[in-house]
């Protein structure tokens, strides 16, 4: 297309967007709502994946020492753990420290367990494996050691978390596809209306020898603009809402929710929403054109 043709197409697209203001707003509204939902879902999904990942990385084995074990047995156990090739970190947690931690987490609830004598907790080791996936294997091995009372690791929790994340991702994917199809359909429909309004103009263009592409360009640019503008607004809104949620999480001491930084979220959203918005816009206008070009 020549520079003249391109400028003409841009002018026509802008003129049409302005002339059919309400239609433009309607189409853009569709894109905005679709991408807002989609973007919101993406944020939840990204963070879930992130939390699962970090939980997985934090998985540790808590080994409770048998209350009956002698000092020698305890020391032997300690030596064995330190010498173990698959353990990256071995930390002894005396029951006093455990109680202290519990108090910090639960506050008043554990009031009354002040004295050392009635501390119901046990001494333990907190162990971290060199690789998270070794947890199950190493835990099985350690269970057979002497002086080991109980042994816990977050296998089930992690598995459940992963299953949940996968389910959320699948539902999310289905939802995203559904929304995208709806958006294409709605945009196609709204642009079809603007094409319908201008069918006379298109017919005249065909009679004076316009090529199909000459006629299509303004509509495609129109769809593109609707898509870009329709994607930009959700991007900004989602960014600020997310920023606010992060602040809320911090203000409410929910630090255990390890959420992704907003800059990263903004990048991810822009990477998907902008192409998606423009794609939806172009696809929508493409679908709505062809019937009117057969003159």
């Amino acid at each position: 297309m020549s520079a003249n043709g391109f400028l003409y197409a841009c002018g026509e697209a802008l003129r049409s967007l302005y002339r059919n203001k309400w239609m433009t707003i309607a189409s853009m509204g569709v894109v905005i709502v679709t991408l807002l939902m989609l973007g919101g879902f993406m944020i939840v999904n990204l963070n879930l994946t992130h939390i699962t990942q970090s939980v997985k990385e934090q998985v540790e084995i808590v080994l409770y020492i048998d209350d009956e074990a002698t000092i020698t047995e305890r020391n032997e156990l300690r030596q064995k753990l330190i010498a173990h090739g698959s353990l990256a970190e071995v930390r002894f947690v005396p029951k006093e420290e455990a109680l202290q931690r519990l108090k910090e987490q639960m506050g008043d609830v554990v009031e009354g367990y002040e004295a050392v004598e009635n501390n119901p907790l046990r001494d333990s080791f907190e162990l971290r494996t060199s690789r998270p996936e070794l947890v199950g294997e190493v835990a099985g091995e350690l269970a057979g050691y002497p002086a080991v009372g109980d042994l816990y690791y977050g296998e089930e929790t992690v598995d459940k978390l992963f299953t949940a994340t996968r389910a959320v991702q699948l539902v999310g994917l289905a939802l995203m596809i559904g929304l995208a199809v709806t958006a294409v359909f709605l945009i196609a429909h709204t642009i079809r209306l603007t094409v319908f309004i201008r069918r006379r103009e298109i017919m005249i263009m065909k009679y004076v020898g316009a090529t199909n592409w000459f006629i299509r360009w303004p509509f495609i640019l129109e769809g593109l603009l609707i898509g870009i503008l329709g994607a930009a607004l959700p991007l900004v809104v989602l960014y600020y809402v997310y920023q606010a949620s992060l602040e809320w999480v911090v203000a409410n001491n929910l630090r255990f929710l390890t959420l992704l930084p907003s800059s990263l979220i903004a990048g991810e959203l822009a990477k998907y929403l902008l192409p998606l918005g423009t794609g939806l816009g172009i696809l929508g206008s493409f679908f709505s054109m062809d019937r009117f070009l057969r003159v």
């Binding site: 020549s2 003249n4 043709g5 103009e201 017919m203 005249i204 263009m205 004076v208 020898g209």
Partner: peptide
């Protein structure tokens, strides 16, 4: 006639030229 009624006479005639890629 099949003209674009909301546009000027000039625009209607120019329209047929633009289609062929004529310069302003």
């Amino acid at each position: 006639f099949r003209l674009l009624e909301e546009r000027t006479a000039f625009d209607n005639i120019a329209f047929a030229m633009r289609v062929t890629g004529a310069s302003n």
